[in-house]
Design a protein around this nucleic acid. Structure first.
Lengths: 314, 314
DNA sequence: GAAACTCTCTGACTAAGATCAGAGATATGT
DNA sequence: ACATATCTCTGATCTTAGTCAGAGAGTTTC
């Protein structure tokens, strides 16, 4: 039986695992990386040890330091049982690292914050974590460090992009509004003459089932992409308000979103989709072409649109 | 400008750590990666859950499946207390997943292997772990997957290289012999006419303190690089038997080892070092030049050497 | 102002992870 | 052959992690 695909040397022995004819899905590379990286770096966690407090407590302290809040916030963020949290907090409190006081807004809740000593302990956690990262990097030469940083940044971007979840969102929901706000803010920068698009909440039913749909992608709580489908009639759908946060465009999130929206349009019973865009959004125009869209005549009177596209869904 | 160029989120709070004038040491990239990666991928560990056995047990089972061995091996590999290991093994044994029998070579030890049922459970662990990796990759397009794989492979190589430990090793120790064996095997392939270098164990005292030193770098237990320093007399040292496992040469391990050996030579009181090499080892020759070595006349009668170098240590 | 609900806390409990000090068996060096 | 070292196992013990049920304080709804 062959060696484990996770074999320890980098010498290409793992490359042979993918049988000759298969398409590479690269999962082996991911697994190999996971294994060696977690083994060597020991994850973030380890730097939380050795402060004379158990891991869970340190994690909680860290989280409080990142952003103080109510016990409820912390429970949700760390997914803890309320009884367990209560005990952890009491321990931190008795070590004089955190303050716990009733929330004036709702006196059932408690607000949690760091004391001066707690801030100090938090800094220590930060320092350890940074030290660990530095330990990893120091044996390398400057060029190698740069290569490592570039590789990790690239991997980070792609992993983030891969783990973004596209979610059907009501156009009036706060996440949807936040996404569209970011969208219009960006357009506003591009067209200083003043830019005006209809408020998303104006006709929300057009972007809501059963007539349409609106998708928002969030990462770490903030919107990174959005887009909707509405009906134009005659079996034709229209893709609207498609936007991807600038830093995320390199990761192909746009095409993924577009593909998804086409699928939604198909489910809504459309045979084709159209969309319009401004000529200055060159990346977007290129992406539409790559995705199989062809340019057509103006089909609406949107003053900001210069290019009009269509794609057959069958 | 202080923002990371690839930073997809506006979070900013972490980016400001690197003050404007500092040289980038890239620790922020590493930390950022650690945080987001562990958060999203949840490490390898998670795929070990849900088999009806606790994490530690699953980890042990997995390790046995990767490479069966004696209890001692496992204890070292997983860094477990012997009592703890004993109990974990007993549990696996009572579930009929592993066989434990005395090692015929040393009847104090026990050999541990998987039963058929154990192999099946191991396959299940493998499958889960692979599934998790695949889940990560599937949302990406083919090109993005290739980019991710390339980035992770690059990061993996560099991380491995960075975490390799160079250790002063006695020339007669098994790791040293293993390294030199790999070295001569490779040279044997390059020079099919037959290749003969003196056995390392012949004059071990020359490569041993106080006259010399021999360093071996191991990764996951197998040697990946080696090299020694011996005295030539007159304040001159000689670097001998320097070798880096092929797959590791891209990661700059050679220069790191060379730099280290120069430091050792300096500590041994030498003012300069020499070395010889064969002309066909073009990468090596280039590396020596890059490291500040200049070519000199032949200073010995090594029939395999064609190039001779020296470097001043002060 | 009572009912229903929300939130935190306490006590009781369990499993898992981990460490330590020997006992007993086996191997090695002199 | 003896002392010494090595190795695994057992029993005892401890901390951490995590769960559950309900008490008690506070808030919202009608």
């Amino acid at each position: 039986m062959s060696r484990s695909p996770l074999s320890p040397t980098p010498s290409g022995s793992s490359g042979s695992d993918a049988a000759a004819g298969e398409l590479p899905d690269h999962t082996e590379v991911v697994r190999r990386f996971n294994r060696s990286y977690t083994q060597r770096i020991g994850v973030l966690e380890e730097s939380f040890l050795g402060l004379g407090m158990p891991l869970g407590t340190a994690r909680l302290l860290y989280e409080i330091g990142v952003e103080p809040g109510t016990t409820r916030d912390l429970r949700v963020r760390l997914d803890l049982d309320s009884g367990y949290l209560s005990r952890l907090l009491r321990r931190l409190q008795s070590d004089a690292l955190v303050t716990v006081e009733p929330d004036p807004a709702d006196r059932r809740r408690r607000r949690v914050g760091l004391t001066a000593a707690g801030r100090q302990a938090w800094d220590e956690l930060e320092r350890r974590s940074a030290d660990r990262a530095r330990d990893l990097v120091t044996p390398l030469t400057g060029r190698q460090r740069a290569r490592l940083a570039a590789a990790l940044a690239e991997a980070d971007l792609l992993v983030r992009a891969a783990t973004v979840r596209l979610e059907l969102t009501d156009p009036t929901a706060p996440e949807a509004l936040a996404a569209v706000e970011a969208y219009t803010a960006e357009l506003g920068e591009r067209f200083p003459g003043g830019f005006e698009i209809g408020d998303l909440a104006e006709e929300p039913e057009r972007l809501r089932p059963p007539d349409g749909a609106f998708m928002v992608a969030t990462s770490d709580g903030s919107p990174v992409a959005c887009g909707g489908v509405q009906a134009l009639g005659g079996g034709v759908g229209e893709i609207k308000r498609m936007w991807v946060r600038p830093g995320w465009r390199l990761a192909g999130l746009g095409s993924r979103l577009l593909r998804h929206l086409e699928g939604v349009a198909r489910e809504l019973g459309h045979d084709a989709v159209r969309l319009d865009t401004h000529g200055s959004l060159t990346e977007a125009v290129a992406m539409y072409r790559r995705a199989g869209y062809r340019e057509i005549e103006r089909y609406n009177d949107n003053p900001h649109a210069e290019h009009f596209f269509t794609k057959n869904l069958h």
